[in-house]
């Protein structure tokens, strides 16, 4: 990204909630390392689709899927899953496989893309909420796949809205979500002049979304191929059909809550792998703690 070119339009897009019935659906996934074995590591992945219809939230949760990843099997596992999800391999732009430490995130991304693809083919005249941005060309966001998902949604008159909880985009040295404006929420501020570094491509237009009163604002990417009026209408329908607090839609919050692993679940999965699969978890000593004692895990430790 070339930060020096990034600007925010000063004129806000003021929003009015539109209450006509429209489905709001959200996707999120999460991953966690369950433990280590002598050969590799055990990870779990889970995803959730949540949708709001007739004022009720419903969900469909997939997982947990547990994988035993080793240096030997990681490429095969990833390739098999990729094929299972998308029939044709959607390798990243470099065509290489992730290293074992990146694997948990990549597996979760794979599930997330599959869930997003499913929603884009099933939701009509609605809004699909993604967690993150619409930047493609990275290992976990192949451009062709993201384009396909967005195109499928458009075909069904559905708009994809991607909310990022964190952003690094800055204007005059300040994060775009920290800038304060005198406007009355809900409103959008369009970010212009963004030029991502190749091979990354922006498939959405970027906005700062301040949907409720208070200090919270989020980066919001909306499918670039959608007309401006449709983009605004989609956010207004979101405001009219979902609960929004702290500028964040409830549907997406629930998707996140439902897929996140709790400590209890981690213990249960450890119990499962030791009982059902006969795997023995290894307790590796924490070298940081071992070497540095109370200074072993500082907040700014790299």
């Amino acid at each position: 990204m070339h930060p020096q070119t990034l600007q925010l339009r000063t004129q806000p897009i003021l929003l009015k909630p539109r209450h006509e019935e429209s489905m709001v659906a959200a996707v999120d996934t999460s991953t966690i390392k369950i433990g280590e074995t002598s050969a590799g590591m055990l990870i779990a992945v889970r995803g959730a689709n949540v949708w709001r219809q007739n004022r009720n939230y419903r969900y469909m949760r997939f997982g947990p899927f547990i994988f035993h990843l080793t240096e030997e099997n990681k490429n095969d596992v990833y390739a098999v899953l990729q094929r299972a999800c998308f029939e044709t391999p959607r390798g990243d732009s470099h065509g290489s496989f992730p290293n074992i430490l990146q694997m948990p995130m990549r597996m979760a991304s794979l599930l997330e893309r599959w869930l997003q693809a499913m929603l884009s083919r099933t939701i009509s005249r609605g809004q699909i909420l993604f967690d993150g941005s619409l930047t493609s060309g990275t290992g976990d966001a192949p451009t062709s796949l993201i384009r396909e998902i967005l195109a499928n949604a458009r075909k069904r008159n559905t708009v994809v809205l991607a909310f990022s909880k964190m952003t690094n985009l800055r204007v005059n040295g300040q994060l775009i979500t920290d800038l304060s404006f005198e406007h009355k929420p809900p409103y959008l501020l369009e970010a212009i002049g963004m030029r991502p570094k190749p091979p990354m491509i922006l498939l959405g237009d970027v906005f700062v979304a301040k949907l409720t009163k208070g200090s919270y604002a989020f980066r919001l990417d909306i499918d670039r191929e959608v007309a401006v009026e449709q983009k605004i209408e989609a956010v207004e329908k979101l405001l009219g059909n979902d609960l929004v607090s702290q500028s964040y839609p409830e549907t997406l919050r629930l998707a996140h809550i439902l897929c996140t692993f709790t400590a209890n679940e981690v213990i249960a999965m450890q119990h499962f792998v030791t009982r059902r699969c006969g795997l023995r978890l290894v307790n590796r000593p924490d070298m940081h703690k071992l070497l540095f004692g109370p200074f072993g895990r500082g907040e700014y430790c790299s």
Partner: peptide
């Protein structure tokens, strides 16, 4: 909350 869990394992 109403929903379904697909929990193959």
């Amino acid at each position: 909350m109403q929903g379904e869990d697909f929990d193959p394992l």
